[in-house]
Design a protein around this nucleic acid. Structure first.
Lengths: 339, 339
DNA sequence: CTGTTAGCGCCTTCAT
DNA sequence: ATGAAGGCGCTAACAG
């Protein structure tokens, strides 16, 4: 079933059929209708490969994300998929598992598939071989979650968000506020969030405490130990929700009630957080919307035969989801004996 | 950069270059090497669209899943993506949000993209317009999670799994075991799991209790109410982990300690379950592996120009993950006053 | 406004 | 074992 059959049935040439689909206003309404009628009488579906071969436009967006095991990215991908569906682009997802090599492989695979653009999250936007790769190849791209002045990004201001959060905790009476994070070296986002924590703490004169755990590893044990010590924190801010969930668990294992003895706040706003008990307070990012906006930015640029540039970057609003794990105000803890 | 440049540089015809890539044994080792050398000296990457246009093989697998907000499917998709990457197929994901219309749309979109095969999870394998659609179009497909004698499926035996679980709970001394499920009409899997529950309960002579909640809705309230009643269940088995998480929350809100006062077991084995507190007991499905096997089945068939058939179906082993929310044995509850 | 025509890059008979 | 040549379905000049 090709354009030819449609042309014959409609009694026009194939060029007209092509035009009727691609530049409808270039063809007389009458003939256009005849063509449309013929097309769906025959169940004609344009052949994307032929079109791609001819135009070297694949109408495909590559998506390179760290992992789908973190709901943040799954949610973002859902947003991307939904947005793409509305634009006639399809998406080609790949995950990197936070592995530099897999990131490169993924990039190569996407390039081989001739994607028209790429949406990706990298470890360090400031210095990413993968990013260079796309840049060199002239492939339009947008970063999701990463924030960097030199690249087009769709993100929230993690630094400010974390600063505000810590300021609020300080206002609530907390003094020993620790930050729980994955390896800072492995993620510019975690670093930016840490900076926000650092700034607020520094301004307050309170002592900072960073509990950094090697990536992926559960790290609950480290935390339990820390939470059992006499000078334990009264609040823990986490660089992401998955860590915050573990923090909740560590608190339970350490015999602390959340939020009575300890406030816990995550970052990301993954959906399941609200269903936990205590429900997980979090600095929520609009994950789905981030996906949407990435697609919009990218597709807009592509359709103008351009590439998104740093100036197109979007900072979306975050929202402190003050759920149960964030205590209302801090009451002086029973010293020594928690629980 | 096309096959022509490679041919010139290697001093052979384009036909030979094509063969060197597709049927290496048809060309002399010497010329083959020359071609390979030329190819990667030039950084040649075959043009998939041209190949697809010529062979009408897109080397793309459609993936139609209910949602990525449920980690089960995100995990499965990760498995699919990983497996596909190893086979030269790429994947084209779409989600349906459990909506019949979106399911149809998705199917149409995949068909329009000329996917070579489809991996999907439908509401009811026994009667699915979407499935018919693919069947009629002659598109090879494999069902993930669904189980039905007439279709190729990769799944675990949910009925048996649930039966075993309930038998174990009965052995542990539980008598009032309730099942917590989404709308049974909306999912054949939930129905099969319920059947397992039903069988075991019936055999034991204990009274069955199905707590069915409308899809998507949080349903915590319904459950809290039920758990506060005097004749409350001592164990709740859930048709999936997301519901089980809500059950955990409902228990907390009802003032019940899990597992002391109530055992809760989910279904699916989503990764985050193990990090909760109490950690979520669950009948774990090998989600990633389900994805892998779907790809394998489908690709094998496609490469033989066939379609997977019902006889190819795979039943993978499930595993009862007996984590904290499943109490060791049941101790008679303080009647009337829980907590 | 519509038709004719020349490829896009590749695979695949058919010869040799 | 290799080469020559046709055509997959479509778009984009170029004519008319």
């Amino acid at each position: 079933m090709s354009i030819i059959a449609v042309a014959q049935r409609a009694g026009v040439s194939i060029a007209t059929v092509s035009r009727a689909f691609n530049s409808p206003d270039l063809v007389m309404p009458a003939t256009r209708h005849a063509i449309e009628a013929a097309a769906d009488a025959l169940g004609y579906v344009p052949n994307l490969s032929a079109r791609t071969l001819r135009t070297s436009r694949s109408h495909t967006l590559g998506v390179l994300l760290p992992t789908l095991y973190n709901p943040v990215f799954a949610e973002c991908l859902a947003g991307i998929a939904a947005a793409a569906a509305g634009t006639g682009f399809s998406i080609l997802p790949a995950t990197t598992d936070y592995d530099e090599r897999r990131e490169q492989q993924g990039a190569r695979a996407l390039l081989a598939r001739a994607v028209d653009g790429v949406i990706l999250t990298v470890a360090n936007a400031a210095d990413s071989a993968t990013l260079d790769h796309f840049k060199r190849a002239g492939v339009p791209y947008v970063l999701a979650y990463n924030r960097h002045a030199d690249h087009p990004c769709v993100s929230v201001d993690g630094r400010a968000a974390m600063r505000e959060l810590v300021e609020r905790l300080l206002r609530d009476g907390h003094r020993r506020i620790a930050m729980f994070s994955g390896t800072l070296a492995a993620s510019d986002r975690a670093r930016q969030r840490f900076e926000g924590y650092e700034q607020a703490m520094q301004a307050s004169g309170c002592e900072r405490e960073l509990i950094e755990v090697p990536f992926v590893v559960s790290a609950v044990d480290t935390l339990v130990e820390r939470l059992r010590a006499p000078q334990r924190p009264t609040a823990v801010v986490c660089s992401n929700d998955l860590l915050a969930v573990r923090c909740l668990r560590a608190a339970a294992l350490a015999g602390l009630a959340v939020p009575r003895d300890l406030s816990v706040v995550g970052f990301d706003g993954i959906g399941i957080g609200a269903d936990l008990s205590p429900s997980l307070a979090s600095i929520a990012q609009p994950n789905e919307r981030i996906g949407h906006e990435c697609v919009r930015l990218l597709v807009d640029a592509i359709e103008r035969s351009e590439r998104p540039c740093a100036a197109d970057s979007l900072t979306l609003a975050h929202e402190l989801r003050a759920l149960e794990s964030l205590g209302p105000v801090f009451r002086k803890p029973t010293p020594g004996v928690p629980r």
